[in-house]
Design a protein around this nucleic acid. Structure first.
Length: 470
DNA sequence: TGAAATGTTGGGGCG
DNA sequence: ACGCCCCAACATTTC
């Protein structure tokens, strides 16, 4: 039975352990090849080939290749369109099956269907396995057999369905076949300096994931619930980019979250499953409001406002600090993602789609499902979104979650000397005080580009069209 | 996984 | 001593 050759196609699962596709291929095939494709249809969409994420992927691939070589195998790396490269390599190697882990994004589903059809034409089987989530779209449904659209009942059903088998490590061993070509080129040969990664605080690959995970698991996981909302504090796991590229297994994280009884952190992992499931069932959300009545909203076309938001020059310190953190590191604290998203939609009156696109360009951990879900949540147009009349006050959020202004001063150094009393709203300083500390609002730091109270009224009026449609 | 407006209560200052 | 007003402090409602 185990005589045939198989090919494992790695995509967003850059690890060699607890890997559904690799385990399935190894259990059914005598020899298993491995491949990763730098998809030119994705690469051509990026602002730059020196994109932080390409960098992360490359470094992670080197580590994956080394791990596979230690097991007698190795990684083929191809550049091109997956629809052409995968069938071509399958033919070249003479495999009888291709294995991969299932992806739920509309474009990825389309791509995989095309590959499967091409392979079928040559008598090659295509297997897509569940790996990147605990439960996929068809596994957690309402009594009526329909997908959930509200998180809490979804979470309850998810928890009820969960057994230890769902989070067990998927072991695999043996049978890897060495590629007939050289190892992937090093980072240096692509013009990347490895130190860039460290400077950004991003450690790629399975080892980078392991470092973060060990640190989080050793004690911070217990305090996540109480510290997670404070961006100045090391309160979260920082594992999002590793979950995005699969350099760590979701099963391992959920297993330990359960063991540690880390309820609020487990909830965040369930939110991830929830948004995968939503996008799988409701792909229209990629282009339109999840709730159709919200398509009636007329957003402002305000390029200067968008630019100020993107560059962190809105005059609202917490918003600006958050955007500068994103621009500088490719990561933003989750509380701040909500704050800046609310600010763009409900203070500047700019469409959530502009914010979604900017996050897609900047976030190392960018994932279509979670990003779209988060933005539609903030804009109130999503499934289980916040109500349209819920509008964050950027000053109040700042006082609550960065009470001493520590985070603000870290990313907006021109405000370093502003006293605590004014750090959340520096425009309230009198002229004398501004001169005394040498920080003139409008010269050294922008004056607020909108007045929150006025913007709030405008937003309530803007959203009135939704109320009428109901 | 809000915030602002409005309503209620009760202590204290004061005539 | 008493009523009146002010206004925190808290609760409720509204968006």
């Amino acid at each position: 039975m185990k005589q045939e050759k198989a090919l494992v196609w790695f995509r967003r699962d850059l690890r060699d352990h607890d890997h559904a596709a690799l385990a399935a291929a190894l259990s059914r095939s005598a020899s298993v090849y491995c491949v990763f494709v730098f998809d030119t249809t994705i690469l051509d969409d990026l602002p730059s080939r020196k994109d932080r994420r390409v960098h992360f992927i490359h470094a992670s691939l080197l580590e994956l290749d080394a791990a596979l070589r230690a097991r007698g195998g190795g990684l083929y790396v191809r550049h091109g369109r997956s629809e052409a490269e995968i069938p071509a390599l399958a033919r070249e190697l003479g495999v009888s099956a291709v294995y991969c882990n299932r992806d739920y994004e509309p474009a990825a589903k389309q791509r995989d269907a095309t590959v499967a059809t091409a392979l079928a034409g040559e008598g090659v089987d295509f297997h897509a396995l569940k790996d990147q989530c605990i439960f996929d779209g068809e596994e957690v449904l309402t009594q009526a057999g329909k997908p959930f659209t509200v998180f809490t009942p979804y979470k309850n059903a998810w928890r009820k369905r969960l057994t230890s088998a769902d989070v067990a490590c998927i072991h695999s061993e043996g049978g890897l076949a060495a590629p007939q070509e050289d190892a992937p080129s090093s980072l240096e040969s692509l013009g990347f300096a490895t130190t860039d990664l460290i400077a950004l605080g991003i450690h790629p690959g399975m080892s980078g994931a392991r470092r973060l995970w060990d640190d989080f698991r050793a004690g911070r996981i217990q305090r996540y619930g109480s510290l997670r909302d404070f961006p100045a504090i090391k309160g979260v796991s920082y594992l999002s980019v590793h979950l995005r590229f699969g350099t760590i297994s979701i099963r391992e994280l959920v297993r330990h979250a359960l063991a540690a009884e880390a309820e609020s952190w487990l909830n965040e992992l369930i939110w991830r499953d929830f948004y995968f499931m939503i996008l799988d069932h409701f792909p229209h959300a990629v282009e339109y409001a999840f709730k159709p009545e919200y398509n009636a909203i007329r957003w402002d076309d305000w390029p200067a406002g968008l630019t100020a938001w993107q560059q962190g020059n809105t005059g609202y310190p917490l918003v600006d600090a958050a955007m500068r953190q994103l621009n500088h590191s490719g990561w933003m604290h989750n509380r701040l993602r909500m704050v800046v998203a609310s600010f763009l939609c409900k203070d500047l009156g700019i469409s959530w789609r502009h914010g979604e696109r900017y996050f897609a360009e900047q976030l190392n951990d960018f994932d279509l499902s979670a990003n779209n879900g988060g933005w539609q949540w903030a804009a109130s147009s999503g499934c289980d979104a916040q109500p349209y009349f819920r509008i964050f006050n950027p000053v109040t959020q700042s006082e609550k979650f960065d009470p001493e202004g520590k985070f603000i001063r870290r990313y907006v150094p021109e405000l370093a000397k502003v006293p605590d009393k004014y750090i959340h709203a520096p425009w309230k300083m009198g002229r004398i005080e501004q001169e005394a500390i040498g920080v003139i609002i409008g010269r050294d730091y922008p004056a607020p580009i909108v007045d929150h109270a006025a913007a709030r009224e405008k937003t309530l009026a803007r959203y009135a069209v939704v109320k009428k449609a109901l």
